[in-house]
């Protein structure tokens, strides 16, 4: 039952986007998000749409998976659109009861909606084509200059990858314990709010016990292999830029320049 939830939602394939260095993808996503806030006019949005469509095609991930993320933001999307349409002052387009939709409001609403949708799709392209571990490796490499400022970059990255690694394990564990308690007649579905929370105890207590046990075992296993933080630690597969990564950086810079120009011109 819990197996259907995808988190970190990596979609295996061997497209060019999958092969790119995670640092490139991370920076690319960041640039894309910035660009979304730079462009204002229809030409700018058409430009962003074209780039996004090209990326989706390049990623070879079914569009169905891209749109899955949309469900989560549907509510925010509707609320944002409604407020923008109704509360922006300007030239009235039509009125209904005490509500008035303005022309400016409609334009802002559409712009906001597009921004939100592109933002979600843009970042899911990154998470769909990059394994969580590659992602944390990439982030560690990108943020390593902060080590000079005594920011524990390696430790944070390690914690992130452990946390990510444990999500599926804990999900599986939850599923198992839930099933075991259902087999003993537990009921997780009916009853009022308080009743339901009480019914969660047989699930939560064993889950916490096992999480602590696993954390303990893992710490022990890491220490047994002489783990002592990031100092002098090397990687089995260090991140090295290839030719395609440089090409990608070049394209990202081009894209950013295009977005800046379109933004300044207000097209």
């Amino acid at each position: 039952m819990l197996k259907d939830i995808t988190l970190g939602q990596y979609y295996p394939s061997d497209s060019i986007l999958h092969k790119l260095d995670p640092r490139v993808k991370f920076i690319g996503t960041l640039v894309f998000i910035i660009a979304l806030f730079l462009v204002r006019g229809p030409v700018g949005y058409a430009f962003a749409t074209a780039v996004l469509a090209a990326l989706i095609l390049l990623s070879r991930v079914p569009v169905k998976f891209m749109l899955k993320g949309m469900k989560a933001i549907l509510l925010i999307l509707i609320v944002t659109m409604l407020f923008n349409m109704l509360l922006t002052p300007g030239e009235p387009l039509f009125s209904f009861w005490i509500l008035t939709v303005t022309k400016e409001g409609l334009v802002t609403a559409v712009r906001m909606a597009l921004r939100l949708i592109y933002l979600v799709i843009g970042s899911s392209i990154m998470t769909l084509t990059t394994t969580p571990n590659q992602l944390t490796d990439g982030m560690e490499a990108l943020f390593s200059p902060l080590k000079k400022l005594h920011v524990p970059v390696h430790e944070i990255a390690m914690m992130m990858s452990i946390a990510l690694r444990f999500i599926p394990i804990l999900m599986e564990e939850t599923d198992k314990i839930m099933k075991a308690q259902i087999a003993r007649g537990a009921d997780f579905e009916s009853g009022n709010f308080i009743r339901r929370i009480k019914n969660m105890i047989p699930l939560l207590v064993p889950l916490f016990v096992s999480a602590f046990r696993r954390a303990n075992d893992l710490a022990m296993a890491m220490e047994a292999r002489c783990y002592h933080g990031g100092e002098g630690r090397t990687q089995m597969k260090p991140l090295i830029y290839a030719g395609r990564d440089r090409t990608a950086y070049f394209l990202i810079v081009l894209f950013l320049a295009g977005a800046v120009v379109l933004g300044i011109l207000g097209l």
């Binding site: 075991a180 087999a183 003993r184 007649g185 096992s210």
Partner: peptide, 27 residues
């Protein structure tokens, strides 16, 4: 599910009550 009792692998991972007797009374 009360007629077909299922004991999972490592069933001790499902124990949660404060004492043994209360835990067995859960079912």
């Amino acid at each position: 599910r009360t007629s077909v009792g299922l004991v999972f692998q490592y069933p001790e991972n499902q124990l949660f009550e404060t004492d043994v007797l209360t835990d067995v009374m859960f079912g």
